[in-house]
Design a protein around this nucleic acid. Structure first.
Lengths: 190, 190
DNA sequence: ATTTTGACTAAATGAACATTTTGGTCATTT
DNA sequence: AAATGACCAAAATGTTCATTTAGTCAAAAT
């Protein structure tokens, strides 16, 4: 990747996470990146594509970190929890992710909405892969992997995000315990 | 309840479910109810209170229907499914509920947002009661009833509403089966 | 020749102002 | 004592116009 492109992506990522997508102007990105505005358009065909590119990097980063959390020697239920834990910790701690989720909630910028929807879809696809691997290895009983991944993701959103809207937050331990009790019982072989 | 009040509530309910809360004017409600506008304000102190009153009736109606679906001779897992099934069928078929949920999604009218939030809370409280009864009877193992009711509700939303946004809808049978497999396994005594 | 640039344009945004609509009141009527 | 609708302040909506901004491209820099 060219030096200029790197500067642009870095500047845009910083500006998006500081001010949000809508409040970031291409002039500003150009200034921050020490680049003419036209240069940005030699690498990205639009502001939206620039955002998409940055979010793609984030998705890769999350997948990488989630994979790092996997320990092949541990059983499926431990690993799936580690993966989900990692995904949601990222969601809660990464500045850019926080800002973009905020923007969807408060303003509903369509471009940001779409890109965050894709992030969710990709996380579900990632979990689905883990489920399919576990099924192939006979670690869990056979099930609809897409549906199961979807439910796991939704349940984590419920416990991590929705519950806190009206109650005291749940500790990671409590979440793990609940997840194990409710969702993983149904997948266990016996 | 006085005849005039009945006319007002009926007219408002009809107008809300036809045009939504925001697009309904008090003049219109008065016209439809064959009543002077001032009369409305002898029964309700604001437009919002009128909506709240109507939604309270809906909540009572749902609770009544959900209770009707309960058969004391059946086991807890059957009954809780019947209750949830009834709640979500109502959500999907009642014109007013449909319109109000639409309005929250598309416009986000605060008054409607609040009232629908209350509806959700009351549904969760209702399920919670059923769980506490089952716990008292020793039908299910001990658990945090509020948290369990919350998760059941969220899971039904996920299966009934969210899943359909990107996939083919699930049949009621499939939903029941999934619910039983994942959520109720964790509550069974053995 | 190739890359980079910023002045330029068409479209979007939003500030400021005018106009209309609407929730709620209350003096009057029934 | 109950019901009403003309009335009002405030909120919503429409309009205008100056500013801002995403994206382009001819010219400059390398």
């Amino acid at each position: 990747m060219s030096e200029k492109k790197k500067q642009i992506v870095e500047a845009a990522a910083k500006s998006f996470s500081l001010f949000g997508y809508k409040a970031t102007t291409m002039d500003q990105v150009a200034k921050m990146a020490n680049v003419g505005k036209g240069t940005i358009y030699t690498f990205f065909k639009s502001k939206e594509e620039l955002l998409e590119d940055i979010v793609s990097s984030i998705i890769s980063e999350i997948k990488y970190e989630a994979n790092e959390a996997v320990d092949a020697r541990l059983p499926f239920n431990e690993n799936v929890q580690r993966v989900l834990q990692r995904i949601f910790t990222f969601r809660k701690e990464n500045e850019l992710t926080i800002k973009l989720l905020q923007e969807v909630r408060d303003i509903g910028t369509p471009a940001v909405r779409n890109v965050m929807k894709r992030l969710d879809r990709e996380m579900i696809a990632f979990i689905r892969e883990k489920i399919e691997e576990a099924m192939a290895k006979g670690e869990i009983r056979s099930c609809n992997a897409e549906l199961t991944a979807f439910l796991m993701f939704k349940m984590y959103i419920a416990l991590h995000v929705d519950w806190e809207k009206e109650h005291e937050p749940l500790s990671p331990q409590k979440i793990a315990e609940l997840f194990d009790l409710y969702l993983l019982k149904g997948l266990s072989l016996r």
